[in-house]
């Protein structure tokens, strides 16, 4: 279930920015941090891998399936069923409790039924993150760190091979940053999942298996284009 990016090229209309990534391969169970200055294309790369954006050139494949060849609808379904997304602002639905937020992606995924087995699976993940006692609590009653753990649970429920996290610790206090990240990396490694994370916090980089500096890619692109 490796993630492979080849000859990727993307630019926004009317914008001078160009994202160019010749090659990147991430192996199952590997955690990769994307770093770089603002505007270097970290979130853009994440969105390309998620299928939210479509590149001009190149391909992105997950376990041999070239997702850049898929149509919009298929990319969306692939994201729903085969990827976990974690965001800086948690992006939980405030009118749902912890349980329903964790099950949200599953409810939207085609062909997935909220069975007792799935619910047990959800409880197991939540228990690993230390939140089982808050199972039916409204998310508005949870702390920042707890909310991000709920978002992590949601992302992992359908056992995706790839987890994409955009600044997952950006809104957390120093105590929670490391705790949440360590738990996320451990869960992904334990499930042999690829974790691709955007982060600005260099103090967290030692926790990752690999670091990809987007500013180096920009420099290469600039050099090639003279």
């Amino acid at each position: 279930m490796s993630l492979e990016i080849e000859g990727l090229r993307f630019s926004y209309d009317g914008d001078g920015f160009v994202l160019s990534l010749p090659y990147l391969k991430i192996l199952p169970g590997e955690s990769v941090a994307l770093v770089g200055p603002s505007g270097s294309g970290k979130t853009t790369l994440l969105n390309l891998v998620a299928g939210i954006l479509s590149p001009e050139l190149g391909s992105i494949s997950v376990d041999g399936r070239v997702i850049t060849d898929l149509g919009i609808r298929q990319r969306r379904q692939h994201r729903l069923c085969r990827m976990g997304m974690i965001f800086q602002s948690f992006e939980l639905l405030e009118y749902l409790d912890l349980r329903d937020n964790v099950l949200l992606q599953a409810r939207l995924a085609p062909g997935v039924k909220i069975s007792p087995e799935l619910e047990q699976q959800a409880q197991d993940i939540v228990a690993e993150l230390g939140l089982l006692d808050k199972w039916r609590r409204p998310v508005t009653a949870l702390s920042q760190g707890e909310r991000q753990r709920v978002a992590v649970s949601r992302a992992l429920l359908l056992d995706p091979p790839v987890v994409l996290a955009d600044e997952p610790t950006g809104n957390l206090d120093p105590d929670n940053k490391r705790a949440v990240l360590d738990q996320l990396i451990a869960l992904c490694a334990g499930g042999n999942r690829i974790l691709l994370t955007v982060t600005h916090d260099h103090s967290l980089l030692p926790a990752f298996d690999r670091v990809v500096d987007m500013s180096e890619l920009l420099a290469q692109e600039a050099a090639e284009n003279g």
Binding site: R73, R76, H78, L80, M83, M85, E91, L93, L104, L108
Partner: peptide
């Protein structure tokens, strides 16, 4: 959020 996690 729904759109980003893949809702149609």
């Amino acid at each position: 959020t729904l759109s980003r996690i893949g809702a149609s």
